[in-house]
Simulated assay, not measured.
Amino acid sequence: MSAGRMHPGMHPLDGDLVRRLVAGQFPRWAGLAVERWPSGGTVNAMYRLGDDMVVRLPLVRGGAKDVSMEQEWLPRLAPLLSTPVPEVLGAGKPAEGYPWPWSVHRWLPGGHPESGALSEPLPLAKDLAAFVASMWSITLPGAPKAHRGGPVASLDAETRAAVEELRGIPEEGVDGDAVSAVWEEALRAPGWDGPPVWLHADLMPGNLLVEGGRLTAVIDFGCMGSGDPACDLFPAWNLLPRGAREVFREALGVDDATWVRGRGRTLSQALIALPYYRRTNPVMAGNARHVIRAVLDES
């Protein structure tokens, strides 16, 4: 991954800087080993701190508000969710030339699931549905608006621009007419007419941890907030095979309009991500290709 070219305005990070930040603000952890953790993430860098912790630092200015939001909300959400989520052990401040807030979390064991290589897809689908249902059931007031949580039409211009960009990249083999037809269907679907619900809003495989094929934790709540429940249907197409996809839908009791919006939202994210990350983040680009195939195979 060519992380240095992934976004404009990325702040340089290395282990020495992280050691200085930790030693200056959390001296009780000074001297613990610091090691960059390889990640397909696009907004934050991760550094293992000793055996039991991880330091999470924004790579770009836009991630700073996400860190502060997680520090505020994760302690309140954790007791209400079906699956473990990151525990904030320390709230770091700008220092040592690093300009944004950062966090120390307890390390959560497990690995990221890989689409096409799931050992227990049906039980995993049920685990994911239980997590999503627990998010939707939260009634804490004052939720921020979720990233991507608004109407599907708010994504229209960016999605159409991405389709046209992909038409100019023939080696990606994206059928522009076919994906446009799916997107048009999502735009025609009735919008969400219920109250906004709490969402994770970024249920990518890289934000899930599994052991023995089962969901053990959900991480990276930087996009969380309230909005259209369709935003939390991403795993149906970015991870689960067809049979498990139906188990996921049935467990959540999703109506047709929400399902169509969820498919369109997942496709939109993939279409936008593929041209942007195809040369800088193979994890994100690979998952985008998987989503496009899965959606077109279903339609």
Rank of each mutant, 00 (worst) to 15 (best):
P151G: 04
G213S: 00
M46Y: 14
V60W: 09
E96K: 05
P190C: 09
R167P: 09
P235W: 03
V163Q: 08
Y276E: 10
G110N: 11
D127A: 00
S2W: 14
E172C: 05
A294S: 15
A251C: 11
M69Y: 06
Q25R: 09
W107C: 01
W183G: 07
D256F: 02
P8V: 13
E70G: 02
E211V: 04
V174P: 13
R265H: 10
N238W: 00
A125K: 05
A189P: 02
P170F: 07
W183M: 00
G168R: 15
R106H: 01
W29L: 14
H11Y: 13
T266L: 05
P195C: 11
R242S: 11
S119L: 12
H200L: 12
G243V: 10
D127P: 07
R28I: 03
P190R: 10
M204P: 01
L49A: 08
P8C: 03
E158W: 03
V132E: 12
A3M: 13
L140E: 12
D202W: 02
A64W: 05
I272N: 03
Q269M: 15
V132T: 14
V291Y: 00
L89P: 07
R261M: 02
A30V: 05
L124C: 09
L240D: 06
P241H: 07
A257H: 04
A78I: 06
V254T: 13
I272S: 06
A244Q: 04
E35L: 11
G213E: 00
W100Q: 04
V291A: 01
Q25Y: 05
T42V: 12
N287P: 08
Y47C: 04
D177I: 10
L17H: 04
V88G: 00
Y47N: 01
G264S: 06
A129M: 08
E70K: 02
K126W: 09
H112W: 02
V197I: 10
A244D: 04
R28W: 08
G111F: 00
S180P: 06
E246I: 09
R261F: 02
T266I: 07
M204N: 13
G225T: 03
S299H: 15
H147P: 05
W136S: 11
V174Q: 09
G225H: 01
E165C: 04
R5S: 15
G150D: 08
F131W: 00
P205L: 12
L240Y: 04
P141E: 10
S103Q: 02
L240R: 01
G50P: 12
S226M: 01
L239Y: 05
A117D: 14
A30L: 10
A273W: 02
R61M: 11
G212Q: 08
M284A: 14
R293L: 05
V67E: 11
R249N: 08
L77D: 10
E164A: 15
V210L: 08
A33T: 15
E114K: 11
